[in-house]
Design a protein around this nucleic acid. Structure first.
Lengths: 364, 364
DNA sequence: ATGAATAATTTCTACCGCGAAACTAATTAC
DNA sequence: GTAATTAGTTTCGCGGTAGAAATTATTCAT
């Protein structure tokens, strides 16, 4: 219901292979608890008693999602479908846990989010148990139990997840891959992230959170990344790397927006840089489609504007690496908005909250 | 039990979260029907009543697996764990369905396999519904209902599957990835095949059976494949392509065994060809590990001898494309034996047979 | 032998979810 | 207003499953 929207008891019963009687019984406790509500009766002119679709009461609770980076904390308040209501940013005073907690406190004040039901946090790095930050290079953290720290400070349930994992969850539940069983996610920003959902479940391994998607080799004539890989996805696609490459050619430093603008208006250097990156992105997308056997790739992150400027180059690169008999790869692009990271954190909090309400029996 | 081997009722109950009472009840019908047997009592010197492990009666039935190519049919007779007992080959008289059925008849006679419980067939091409061959380029077949044809001719249940899918199933159930949740399979032979298992289930898409794994770009300076891809996995790794490359350099034609032998003894041309292919294979393995998020890759197919001759090159290529922080990729190599293809077909037949015995209730 | 320990079985009961069938509710068609 | 139609509810019993407790089986230790 969260994913697909309002649905009548009867229709839901048919989909689940249950009788109408069972649906009455099963839905009652959720209605009693205010988790579900009956929607408006349909006015479609058909004969018979009109249906009263059930829906999740999406505004029953608000959620706070925060994305933590080395310098800032970004926060969004969402409803139960991870629709963003308000967003805010605050700068971190330092890299301590208390600095981060203070940042979250500031966000809560600024967003007037004192009433949120739960807090989800996401962070670049390895996270286990939806709470423990095993490693977060940007904050130089090791084995910090951030989830518990947030719960203690703010007195509400908290979930912590890797940022790419969280964003992938958001796309799967509420975003551009809602209800899709197999897809991958590529994020472009300060680095390159890669998430994968197969058989309706995100693939999580012990490597998850190490940022491996960021160092996939794409162009053996490309520049070096910080780890010394030539032409890896970070080297080819991260905002910093693209701006540096353009800066060399242009003889002055440019920021990402300017680079894209220059490319759009035909500047040769900018065009070259952007197209080289676009080709690399196309190769990455095609490789994911070929080897992970997905045919939908969601693109996200604040560096996604690249695709807008050079979409044809991306598509051409995909095609040249993809068998013509294969299903075409669907590219789904999210907004280039940084809030999508914080929204991902909120989505994880929502998911885990609903995980706590698994059956009618427990509500009874 | 098929996958993990004998296990006592008590231990099985603990693993499944069931009481000993339930396990007695649930296992009885299987024992009554002879599907399970009690094994030998343990003699470990521990006090108490000794355990009587349960096991699948692996020789309760025999299975016939056949692999169909454009020129031959290969057959193996196996037990219920897909252990190969006997194998045979026969040449096809033509490309008609009847020619294939005649070939299978010949195999049954040669293998004395008149008593097999079921027949599994595998074929290079797209197959749906475990029966319908949608497309099989080597036989120029379109929409041939081979499964039904086999059932009618031989009067026993038949399953038909794509050859790579079948081989992957065999590795997952009975082979080198027994009980592993996430792994991929790369086959090297006349072409290159790619199979993927995630979350314990093989990934099957509408592209499955089109041989897409065979045209993944690996080396943009490599030779062309039959479809005009430069340096794709087929061009770099298929037996025919490797032999052609070597033949150009050597000034005479060589077969695969000779090529590998020459490379092993240090012939410069052969070494160069084999190492170039080994590097390409390493890149393919690394790409699969990176993008499909697996850390076990099973190598199979009759062209796998390449790895024996140049394993260090393969490993070096994997490492250069893989983050050093990531889990190392485990390579598991099957025999270079062609029977593994036919064994795959048998594995599918076993799997579908056991799919027909899903619960104690149906046996009662 | 006897007792302790462990495995497996039997017996018995609880219970739980499901759906058939009958019923109520709310609409349109005439 | 009445009939037809479809949605949803209530009642009630069936079927199936599980496990607690007692029992039986089989070993080792002494």
């Amino acid at each position: 219901m969260l994913i697909h929207g309002p649905i009548a008891r009867g229709e839901l019963g048919r989909r689940l292979g249950l009788s109408p009687a069972s649906l009455t019984r099963l839905s009652r406790p959720f209605l009693d608890h205010g988790i579900l509500v009956e929607g408006q009766e349909r006015q479609d002119g058909a004969v018979g008693r009109p249906v009263k679709p059930l829906d999740v009461r999406v505004d029953a609770q608000r959620m706070l999602g925060v994305k933590i980076t080395g310098e800032h904390v970004f926060g969004v308040v969402t409803d139960l479908r991870a629709t963003v209501g308000a967003s805010a940013t605050t700068r971190l005073a330092g890299h301590g846990v208390d600095d981060v907690l203070d940042g979250i406190q500031k966000l809560i004040d600024d967003l007037d989010a004192h009433d949120v039901a739960a807090i989800g946090a996401s962070i670049g790095g390895k996270v286990t148990g939806s709470s423990l930050v095993v490693r977060a290079p940007f904050l130089d953290w090791h084995d910090v139990d951030l989830g518990t720290a947030i719960e203690e400070r703010f007195g509400r349930p908290a979930t912590v997840e890797n940022d790419v994992v969280a964003l992938t969850t958001a796309e799967q539940w509420f975003g551009h891959a809602r209800g899709v069983d197999n897809f991958s996610v590529v994020t472009i920003g300060a680095g390159v992230g890669y998430g994968l959902v197969v058989h309706g479940r995100q693939v999580i391994t012990s490597d998850t959170g190490l940022g491996l998607g960021g160092h996939f080799p794409l162009d053996n004539t490309g520049p070096l990344c910080i780890d010394g890989h030539r032409g890896c996805s970070s080297a080819m696609l991260s905002i910093g790397s693209m701006c540096s490459s353009a800066g060399v050619g242009l003889g002055r430093s440019v920021d990402y927006d300017e680079l894209l603008a220059l490319a759009a208006e035909g500047n040769a250097v900018a065009r070259q840089v952007v197209e080289t990156s676009a080709r690399a992105l196309g190769r990455l997308i095609a490789a994911s489609a070929n080897l992970a056997m997905v045919d939908i790739v969601v693109l996200s992150g604040e560096g996604i504007g690249l695709v807008e400027v050079a979409e044809d180059v991306v598509r051409a690169a995909i095609e040249s690496d993809r068998d013509p008999d294969a299903l075409p790869v669907q590219i789904r692009r999210t907004d280039a908005d940084f809030t999508s990271w914080a929204r991902g954190a909120a989505a994880v909090a929502i998911e885990s909250g609903f995980g706590l309400i698994p059956s009618a029996a427990t509500l009874r």
